[in-house]
Design a binder for these strands. Sequence first.
DNA 1: GAATTTTGCTATAGCCTATAACAAAGATGG
DNA 2: CCATCTTTGTTATAGGCTATAGCAAAATTC
Lengths: 146, 146
Amino acid sequence: MMLREELTKMNERNLQSYPGYALRRAANAMIGDLAKRLEAHGTRVVDATALLLIADNPGTTSSAIGRSLDIQRANMVPLLKRLEDAGLIERKPIDGKSLGLFMTAHGEKQLAEIRATIDAFEAELIARIPAKHRDHLLPALNALWR
Amino acid sequence: MMLREELTKMNERNLQSYPGYALRRAANAMIGDLAKRLEAHGTRVVDATALLLIADNPGTTSSAIGRSLDIQRANMVPLLKRLEDAGLIERKPIDGKSLGLFMTAHGEKQLAEIRATIDAFEAELIARIPAKHRDHLLPALNALWR
DNA sequence: GAATTTTGCTATAGCCTATAACAAAGATGG
DNA sequence: CCATCTTTGTTATAGGCTATAGCAAAATTC
C-alpha cells in the first residue's frame, strides 16, 4: 500500500550523517538498556554511579559527588535519601556542617552485584563495536566532554 | 585545607574506564550545548530533529516521525503542536484519518538557519576529536544502536 | 571580626518520557 | 461484503531527571 511504502523509505540520510545524532541515539539506547538491568537490583543508573564513587571515596560529601558527576546540590538530596533509605549508605558528621558518606555492609554487598551487572553490560557494549573501531571510542568520547 | 584536598583527588578511575559512562557524559554535554544554541532560534533539539525529517519527507505523518525517532505517538502531539503554533509546519489530511506534515514557507526559512547552526555545531564537535580517532566515532556509535 | 563562600536543604517548575485508554478510520482474510 | 485486527491521532496522567531560587548554619578568607 502506498503510504506504508513511503514510511519505510523515510529519508534519514541527513540525520545519519550527524555524529551528534548518533551520539544521542547510542547514549539513549545504552542508558535505557543499563537502566533496565539495574532495575532488577532496585537501583537507578545515577544512584549506582554515586554508589561507585562513595565506595571508592569513603567519607566524601554530597557536594563533592555532585561536582564530580555534574549533579546540582539540590538534586543530590533525593538521590542520597534513596541510598540511605535503602540502607546502602550512612552519613556521619565530619565537621559542624558537612556529612561524610560511607557504605554500609549491606551497601557493599549490593554494590558487588551492581558492579557485576555493570561490568557485564560494559563488556557487551564493547563487544558490539567492530574490532577496528573499538579502541577509538573511549578516547574520542572523552575528547568531547573533559 | 584537608577536605578540599580530598575532593579534588576524588577517585574516579573506575568510572573513567567505562565506555558507557563516557558515552553518557559526552552525549549530555553535547546535547546541552546544542540545546543552548538552538534556544537562540526558539527551538528545541527534538523539535529541530523532527523538522529536518519533515523537510526531507514532505507529507510524512506523525506516526512515521515517531517511529523513526523512537518517540511515542502520544509524545508527538505536543511536539507537532509547537511546530504548528510557531507556523513552521502545517497538517493536511491525506486520507480519512492520517494527516500529512508539510513545511510552511516560514518553516523552510527557519530551518535554513537551524541547519546552519546544527552544521556549525557538528563541525565543531568533530573538530574536538583527535584526528586519529575521528573517523571511527560514527561507525562505532552506530554499532551501538542500529 | 566582617565579608564571602560552602554546605545541605526545601520548594518548585520544566522537559522529556512512559502508560493506558479511546474513537474513528484503514487494512485483512474469509 | 463483513467481522476482525491494526493504525492513527489524541487526552490524561505519572514519573524521572534537571534547573533555579532561596535559606540558615558553618567554614573560609582577608
